[in-house]
Computed example of a mutant assay.
Amino acid sequence: MNIAIDELLLQLTQAALLYQTDKRESAQRSLAAVIAFLRQIEAPDELRTPLLEALQIVVGKNGGKKLPKEVLDMVIASVAVTDQLQMGVPLDAALLKVSEAGGQIGATKLKNFRNNMMSKNTPKGALDFYSFMVREARASKLSPAELANISLDAVRTKMKAKS
C-alpha cells in the first residue's frame, strides 16, 4: 500500500502545482488521484461514488452550468464502450455489453449518443468529460481488461443509484 500512497501524494503534488495557473484542471487531477487511490486499495464503491459525482461536476461545467445527470451517465457509459473497444471487443458487442450492464441504457441510444458526442452535437462539457476520463484511464497503469471492468462497474453503480 505504500506504493499506492506514494503515487497518490505524487499526483496530488502535481495537481497542487497546477492550482495557480489552472484551478479547474488542478481540481480534476486531485479528484482523479483520490478516486484512483481508492480503486487501487479496493475501497467500496460507496466511498468512490460521491467523488465521481464531484469529478463530474468539475469536469462537466458548461459555461458555469452543470451538465444534466443523464448526459453525464451517458458519457460514463461511452467511456465503458471505449474501454471494451480497447480490449478488441467489436463495437456492437461492446454497446450491447455496456447497455446490459446499465440496464436502462439501450444500445442504440448509447451508439447515437457516442456518434453525436464525437460530432460535437451534445452539450460542450460532454466531450470534455469523456476526453478527460479516457485520458485518465490511459495514464493509469491498469490493463485494458482492468479498465473495462472498472468502467462497467461504474455504469452498474450509476444505474443502481438511479433505481
Rank of each mutant, 00 (worst) to 15 (best):
1 M>L: 11
2 N>E: 15
3 I>T: 11
3 I>W: 03
3 I>F: 02
4 A>P: 00
4 A>M: 09
5 I>P: 00
6 D>C: 03
6 D>H: 07
6 D>P: 00
7 E>L: 11
11 Q>G: 00
11 Q>W: 03
12 L>P: 04
14 Q>L: 14
18 L>M: 14
19 Y>E: 13
23 K>E: 15
23 K>G: 05
24 R>F: 03
24 R>C: 05
26 S>F: 03
26 S>N: 10
29 R>Q: 15
30 S>E: 11
31 L>F: 05
31 L>Q: 10
33 A>C: 07
33 A>D: 08
34 V>G: 02
39 R>D: 12
40 Q>S: 12
41 I>H: 05
43 A>K: 12
44 P>W: 04
46 E>H: 07
50 P>F: 09
51 L>P: 04
53 E>G: 03
53 E>P: 00
54 A>W: 07
54 A>P: 01
55 L>E: 13
56 Q>V: 00
59 V>N: 08
60 G>R: 10
61 K>Q: 15
65 K>T: 14
66 K>V: 12
66 K>L: 13
67 L>D: 10
67 L>N: 09
69 K>Y: 04
69 K>S: 11
70 E>V: 09
73 D>Q: 12
74 M>H: 09
74 M>V: 01
75 V>E: 11
75 V>N: 06
75 V>M: 08
76 I>V: 15
79 V>C: 02
80 A>V: 07
81 V>G: 05
82 T>D: 14
83 D>I: 02
85 L>W: 01
88 G>P: 09
89 V>N: 05
92 D>K: 12
94 A>T: 02
95 L>F: 08
96 L>E: 15
101 A>M: 12
103 G>D: 12
108 T>G: 05
109 K>S: 14
109 K>M: 13
110 L>W: 01
113 F>A: 09
114 R>G: 03
115 N>I: 14
115 N>R: 13
116 N>K: 15
117 M>F: 02
119 S>G: 03
119 S>W: 01
121 N>C: 05
122 T>V: 15
122 T>A: 07
123 P>N: 12
125 G>L: 11
126 A>I: 11
126 A>W: 04
130 Y>G: 08
131 S>P: 00
132 F>N: 03
134 V>L: 14
134 V>H: 04
135 R>P: 01
137 A>G: 13
137 A>E: 05
139 A>E: 14
142 L>F: 06
143 S>F: 05
144 P>H: 01
150 I>D: 09
151 S>D: 14
151 S>W: 06
151 S>K: 09
157 T>Y: 01
159 M>I: 01
162 K>W: 04
162 K>G: 01
163 S>P: 01
